[in-house]
Design a protein around this nucleic acid. Structure first.
Length: 570
RNA sequence: CGGGAUGUGGCGCAGUUGGUAGCGCACCUGCUUUGGGAGCAGGGGGUCGCACGUUCAAAUCGUGUCAUCCCGACCA
């Protein structure tokens, strides 16, 4: 491909709308352009890379025995009403009407359509198992699209759906898919891990998320280096390492302490000269079923998802300041778990329950209460693990030391069971001639997100550094001076030869200064380059550079240059 | 949907107390250049997001609205 006839609108400066390194690079390197919030055009370069990534995925899916198809992006709303997910999906489902006033939506996912398809076309156990997949658009009207392709409204996903006769078959299909995922992400060079995801709303479901570690990941994962335990921050538990209360706090009743203007745990701790671990902090939350007071140790983070689950509420957010003042009878910063008005539930972390003699707010301006004991001084309604694990905590399985890492969710695999087949009445006949529901699984990979994550992980200040398997071109031939006939004829020959060898080369033949061309080639993520300039002609030496490790090899004849290029591209 | 920020040539930005809309890069023409974002000379391009209002006068002040980005609740 000649650069001059291709379309690579690269940007010299960072676009102001991007924050993430990978997002900036996608825009600067001319991979994508945003049309509207969360809606992107894949430019030729981005599309080429995307196609290569799809091919890596497709290959492993096919090896695993999955069969590709393509389902409609526009779907009648009826099928969503039938499954009941019309309501569940809420505003994320983008609805509209056709000219005959019938309701349609853009597909946020394809369980309904694929289940309907299989229901109508598979009648016998003899035709099972079957796994169907596609690499296709999805649309979710996200409340806040962000970070480029990381969370887009319109995005490309590989989604697969398995159909089995029973749970044993499902386990088998699930294993195959999981294995395919491991191969795909290993091939791409990611540092990743499967973690068990939150159990679905409907019982019996099992799912795992494929997480890739990256500093800029939106999710937090807890890992035990000792035993391999890994779970999301909302699922992970740790063993409490509370060492016991201070001697001075072992008192038979609560003691009021004067703490003028000290509101935060940190400030009070400094003032009283006690560690933050001696505190139980009381947070007041508002929910759809009234106010909740929740307590965790002073140095801990409340895990709101765990709290939601423990309290059995759907909506949970910190109460407004005026509500806190009304409930506690004191300004914000002095809340304690007793004498609270209008509180429906007091929830405490099990770590708080397992010990006693805590320091809390006194529900009084400028005062805290020492030696507060659960059960004696207040009665908790719920005792549960509602704290977030923090680095250094002890593993719940092996007591090893836990670490917390950021990660990006690139894949999610589910055992659905009969969830959709039963709702949509999708049945086959088994060996005994009895009607049974298909036992299903579904398996997704965010393809656009994976591309961006590759760039996030594999790039430097000079530009993108994708692995050969997904880079838009294999090699770049840079003609440093198109006005020089000798240089041009050599560069053209190299380009033509490489192309004839089946190598996907881009030939930079633009009438621009050398610096611009070299910078662009570095930016857009071509792993290898051959620079042809004065030196090439003068010394009859050919250069082959590898971007990844910033090295250049030289050759005195074209044959050895080509041989080496082929070798590197293997 | 709540909280915050920003909207000025293609891109990145400046624009003071309201008074002729600017800079860098990019672009066009010509010449000279070409091993890391070239030089000289000339040139084109903007309803200052949009609407209404205040004013003799609005990029600048007010109200509203839209878009984009960031933080939170959701997710591949």
């Amino acid at each position: 491909m000649r650069y001059s006839s291709f379309f690579i609108p690269s940007l010299k400066e960072d676009p102001k709308e991007a924050v993430l390194k990978s997002h900036k690079l996608l825009l600067r390197a001319g991979y994508v352009r945003q049309l509207s919030g969360g809606i992107y055009t894949y430019l030729p370069l981005g599309l080429k890379s995307l196609r290569k990534l799809e091919e890596v995925i497709r290959k492993e899916m096919n090896i695993a025995g999955a069969v590709e198809l393509s389902m409609p992006f526009v779907q009648p709303l009826d099928i969503w009403r039938e499954s009941g997910r019309d309501e569940d999906y809420g505003k994320e489902l983008l609805r509209f009407k056709d000219r005959q006033d019938r309701d349609f939506c853009l597909a946020p996912t394809y369980e309904e359509v694929v289940t309907d398809l299989v229901k109508k076309n598979i009648k016998s156990y003899k035709e099972l198992p079957l796994t169907l997949y596609q690499i296709h658009l999805k649309f979710r009207d996200e409340m806040r699209p962000r970070f480029g392709l990381m969370r887009a409204k319109e995005f490309i996903m590989k989604d697969a759906y398995s159909f089995d006769t029973n749970e044993i078959g499902l386990d088998e299909s699930y294993k195959k898919m999981k294995h395919a995922y491991e191969n795909i992400f290993k091939k791409l060079g990611f540092d990743f891990k499967f973690i068990k995801a939150e159990a679905g709303e409907i019982g019996g479901n099992y799912s795992e998320e494929l997480m890739v570690f990256s500093e800029y990941g939106e999710d937090k994962i807890v890992i035990c280096e000792n035993c391999g335990y890994a779970a999301s921050i909302d699922e992970a538990s740790s063993v409490s390492d509370y060492k016991g209360p201070l001697e001075s706090c072992r008192q038979p009743r609560m003691t009021k302490l004067f703490t003028p203007d000290r509101k935060s745990v940190e400030a009070v701790g400094e003032y009283l000269k006690v560690d933050r671990t001696c505190f139980a902090k009381t947070l007041i939350y508002e929910t759809e079923s009234g106010f909740i007071a929740a307590l965790v140790r002073g140095d801990r983070e409340m895990n709101e998802r765990k709290l939601k689950k423990a309290a059995g509420v759907k909506n949970l957010f910190l109460a407004k300041e005026e509500d806190v003042e009304r409930i506690t009878g004191a300004p914000c910063g002095f809340a304690g778990p007793f004498n609270l008005k209008d509180i429906n539930i007091i929830a405490i972390d099990d770590e708080i329950n397992n010990s006693e003699y805590w320091i809390t707010g006194a529900n009084e301006k400028d005062a805290h209460m020492a030696n507060v004991k659960p059960g004696r001084d207040f009665t908790p309604d719920i005792v549960a693990d509602i704290r977030s694990v923090q680095a250094g905590d002890k593993c719940i399985k092996c007591s090893g030391t836990l670490t917390v890492k950021n990660a990006i969710e690139l894949g999610h695999i589910f055992k659905l069971g009969e969830k959709y087949s039963s709702i949509l009445n999708a049945k086959f006949l088994d060996e005994k001639g009895e009607s049974r529901f298909f036992v299903m699984g579904c398996y997704g990979i965010g393809v656009g997100r994976t591309l961006q994550t590759l760039i996030e992980v594999f790039s430097d200040d000079n530009g993108i550094n994708l692995p050969v398997s997904v880079s838009p071109f294999d090699i770049a031939v840079v003609n440093l001076n198109v006005n020089d006939e000798k240089i041009t004829s050599v560069a053209e020959k190299i380009y033509t030869d490489l192309t004839a060898m089946g190598i996907d080369a881009i030939y930079d033949d633009r009438k621009l200064s050398a610096g611009i061309k070299l910078k662009d080639i570095d930016l857009i993520g071509i792993p290898f380059k051959i620079v042809v300039g004065n030196r090439t002609i003068k010394d009859n030496i050919f250069e082959l550079s590898t971007k990844k490790n910033n090295t250049t090899e030289t050759f005195d004849n074209l044959d050895s240059l080509y041989k080496r290029a082929e070798e590197l591209l293997k």
